[in-house]
Amino acid sequence: MSFARLVLVVMAKDLRAELRTKEALNASLAFAVVILVLLSFVIESDDVPQKALGNLLWLVFAFAGTLVLNRSFAREVPNDCLDALVAAPISGAALFLGKALASFLLVLAMELVALPVFGIFYNVRWAQQFWPLMLVTVLGTWGVTVIGTVFSALTVNIRLREVMLPMLTYPMLLPALLGAMELTGDLVTGTPIGPDTVTWLKLLVGFDVLFTAASVTLIEFILVG
């Protein structure tokens, strides 16, 4: 079976298992919406520059996304399913990419529901630069997902993995989050990506490429030692 098909098999398995229970998706979605709504009562959007609201949005995405990413490899713990995956004749890279893609789609789904909520409660016309915003959302989310998935594998056998995962991932995510925040801050105010902000886009692309390559290379070592 080709590499791409193996990636899709792992991705489909994770999505099917998650959609049967919706544990992580519901928790992530509820967390994002509740935090956005609660903060809207604290933050007067008229007093805060709209550009800064992009920062808030990405912090919510990162925190809520962690709830999905926590489950990525933790899903394999009951019944020792990880052993069977490691024993199967698939590369660590295919396993990693399948899991990362499944988590990416789940986090993206949460973000696409949270965006209109953000627009309503913060009085932001977020869709003015819809496609560039989608590009930044996809790139930022892939960065969050790659780092989250690799650390999910690293912490899978730790008892306090739900606590450890955010502590490990957020410092690593800083460059990607900074890029996504800067770009989103502009895009939600209707400012397109220009020569002064394209550097952030390049940073985001570079982060994604670098950490995807590093994760794919290291995952076998992380899983087997």
């Binding site: 079976m1 098909r5 193996l6 098999v9 398995k13 099917r16 298992a17 998650e18 049967r20 229970t21 899903r75 009951p78 019944n79 020792d80 399913c81 052993d83 069977a84 995956l85 024993a87 199967a88 004749p89 698939i90």
Partner: peptide, 25 residues
């Protein structure tokens, strides 16, 4: 390999579990 765990997914059906492993192999 059969270890201490059954290594099948609780959220999937019996057929889905075996089809998954048949695909992986």
């Amino acid at each position: 390999f059969i270890g201490h765990g059954i290594a099948v997914y609780d959220e999937l059906s019996a057929r889905e579990n075996l089809t998954l492993y048949a695909r992986l192999y």
